[in-house]
Design a protein around this nucleic acid. Structure first.
Length: 637
RNA sequence: GCCCACAUAGCUCAGUGGUAGAGCACUUCCUUGGUAAGGAAGAGGUCACCGGUUCGAGACCGGUUGUGGGCUCCA
């Protein structure tokens, strides 16, 4: 008896009954067998050593297939666990999945691993690779699997397997003396794993629940070749050099101090960028029909009880008492806006009313969750609340999307992804209201033709939210914008407007932000631009570099003229060489350097150097200023 | 909050129990130069904080605070 399988080029191949993918690959060529990692049967990836079935379509998966990277990472995770079990037999294994850019494996150990352990574990992994241990799939009945893990002293695995319905087959893989629960597929031998590196250690809760025990997690990554691995490690280094915490210090933008944990101090240069961002948003608010408001920082706790924050958000709030009256520092602007809206009578003719607020917010974030500028305890959102009717939600949504796209385009963010977060467990309001709110957002997204993913249970306590995610220059995702629909606050604050028929209507409230928070946005922007802000945002737009003292007079005049036109100028009169001045301006990422020597001073010219484009030659000062003015006005990147 | 690591000059970092160091930055002097560091001198530290061990602690131990890598959480 023989079987026949179809290859991707539609050719048929005869094989003996019971032949595997490996036999198929070997029959085609020894080099293919060597490169083979798995096979794809009728589109589904399975182990290379899976027996072939007559009449199926079979494809040999080698390192050329994009999904093979996941395969070797998964197998490398098993390799890691195998090595750990050899070195630390008392370690009990958790789970070891593939993640973006690599994998991890969790271990339950008495003493957590330390970074010094990694080279030893890695060496043991290489030893297992050198041994070329065969990786074999071994399926077991559920009860047999439970018994096997119980005998092996693996309580975490027992817990997982026990949750699988009885009678089901549990797949697992054995490599030498190491057996692991796993769906597979895997590479046929540890010899196939050639380029991997263990990267870091971290604590992680079992099953991601902080009530469970803490496991010791080892992160690593794997690639097909050492060259690819090296390139990846180089990219990680590149990301490190762009770290906004490092660049912020180097460029003198902001700093952090123990006196105010997780709260940035914006230095003059950082404040310039910050204020330019606010000015930009203000200009757009004018264009899009928003009105800016200013509301108090500290408000009576009763307000927060009305808004529901006291009940649902108190853990994240700061409280203070004065004259025996209790207050809270605002973590959000919305309740203040509701007070303002409710303080006047409104006609349907006024709606939508759009209140924008750059108020400072304070949220108590648990120590350990803060991170540079991207997670702080005091920040300011490009926040606005739109009071409108149900019918107006769609046009408001469309206008908001237009505004959002305009902003992200200005900064060069691409690859926007959208997620809809629905009702969380801890929430206000009835299911009917949530149905309406979630429905409104979903419908608006559908109408805008925007594909989105669902984040069940991730909404805010007062309403569902749409979250907008972009990719930065290093293709890393960031959540920036948000749009939330809220039926709750208007209800709780009893907000009304007069309808055309003279009756009272209840407005809907939309919460929205585009940059998210100015703080986080600046951090992201620093990493996106590597600190080289576009000219319109740069803290110093022009550095004026006289070569000798003789040029100081004209350099001073040039600086004065540039300043008169509103440019941010740094006049470098230090007794340093031109080379040194250029170097310092380059390191400060100043967009334009104007070199002024005797020749330029005499003719009223400047020699223009751009931080990226280099020497741009000599031109009249006024011509340069006119060009720069256009670049800044258009907010060119 | 939890697990682990780290904390020395403004910055980046050396310093394995016996007198506190380097480079850069800063100040002064010399140098007046043409597109990424000219030269010299000087000044600068309660080694995060509190306690312990020791004849002696920047170093060893415990605690606190802050920061970092993660987990949980999140703009």
């Amino acid at each position: 008896m023989s079987i026949e399988v179809r290859l991707p080029d539609d050719s048929l191949r005869q094989l003996a009954e019971g032949a595997t993918g490996a036999d198929l690959a070997g029959g085609i060529g020894a080099r293919l067998l060597d490169a083979a990692l798995a096979i794809r049967v009728n589109g589904r990836m399975v182990d290379l050593n899976t027996p072939l079935v007559n009449g199926t379509k079979v494809e040999i998966v080698t390192s050329k297939a994009p999904e093979s990277l996941e395969l070797i990472r998964h197998s490398t995770a098993h390799l890691l666990a195998h090595a750990v079990k050899r070195l630390y037999p008392q370690a009990r294994v958790g789970i070891g999945p593939v993640i973006e850019d690599g994998f991890f494996y969790d271990f339950w150990v008495d003493k957590p691993f330390t970074p010094e352990d990694l080279p030893f574990i890695e060496a043991e992994m290489r030893k297992i690779v050198a041994e070329g241990v065969e990786v074999v799939r071994e399926d077991l009945g559920r009860d047999a699997a439970v018994a096997r893990f119980q005998a092996a002293g693996e309580p975490l695995k027992v817990e997982i397997v026990s949750s699988i319905p009885q009678g089901e087959i549990v797949s697992g893989y054995r490599q030498g003396d190491f057996y692991d629960l796993c769906r597979g597929p895997h590479v046929p031998s540890t010899a196939k794993l050639k380029a991997f590196k263990l990267l870091s250690i971290a604590g992680a809760y079992w099953r991601g629940d902080e009530k469970n025990q803490m496991l010791s997690r080892i992160y690593g990554t794997a690639f097909h070749t050492q060259k690819e691995l090296d390139e990846h490690l180089k990219r990680l280094e590149e990301a490190k050099t762009r770290d906004h915490r490092k660049l912020g210090k180097e460029l003198g933008l902001y700093s952090f101090h123990p006196e105010a944990p997780a709260s940035p101090f914006f230095h003059p240069k950082g404040t310039t960028v910050y204020n330019e961002l606010v000015a930009y948003m203000r200009a757009l608010y004018f264009k899009y029909g928003y009105s800016e408001v200013i509301t108090p920082q500290i408000l009576d706790v009763d307000l927060w009880k009305t808004s529901g924050h006291y009940e649902n958000y108190a853990d994240n709030m700061y409280f203070t008492t004065a004259e025996e009256r209790e207050y809270a520092v605002k973590p959000m602007n919305c309740p203040g806006h509701c007070i303002m809206f409710g303080s006047q009578k409104h006609s349907y003719r006024e709606l939508p009313i759009r209140y924008a607020d750059f108020g400072r917010l304070h949220r108590f974030e648990r120590s350990g969750v803060t991170h540079g500028l991207t997670r702080v305890r005091t920040f300011c959102q490009d926040d606005a609340h739109i009071y409108c009717t149900t019918e107006q939600i769609k046009t408001e949504m469309a206008d908001f999307l237009a505004l959002l796209k305009e902003v992200y385009d200005t900064f060069g963010f691409e690859g926007m992804r959208v997620a809809l977060s629905t009702r969380p467990e801890k929430r206000l309001g009835s299911d009917e209201i949530w149905d309406a709110a979630e429905g409104a957002l979903a419908e608006a997204l559908d109408e805008a033709g925007m594909p989105y993913t669902l984040n069940p249970g991730e909404g805010a306590f007062y309403g569902p939210k749409i979250e907008f995610q972009i990719l930065d220059a290093l293709k890393r995702p960031w959540q920036l914008g948000t749009l939330q629909v809220d039926y709750m606050m208007p209800e709780r604050f009893d907000l009304t407007y007069t309808r055309p028929d003279g009756g009272e209507g209840r407005p809907i409230m939309l919460h929205r932000a585009i940059l998210g928070s100015l703080e986080r946005f600046m951090g992201i922007l620093v990493e996106h631009t590597a600190g080289a802000f576009p000219a319109w945002l740069a803290p110093v737009q022009v550095a004026i570099l006289p070569i000798t003292d003789r040029a100081h007079a004209f350099a001073g005049e040039a600086a004065a003229r540039a300043k008169a036109q509103g440019f941010r100028v740094d006049l470098d009169l230090r007794n340093e060489s031109l080379k040194a001045k250029i170097r310092d301006a380059q390191l400060a990422k100043v967009p334009y350097m104007l070199v002024i020597g005797d020749r330029e001073a005499e003719a009223g010219n400047v020699s223009v150097r751009h931080r990226h484009r280099g020497d741009l030659g000599v031109q009249a000062l006024d011509d340069f200023l006119a060009t720069l003015a256009a670049e800044v006005r258009l907010r060119q990147r």
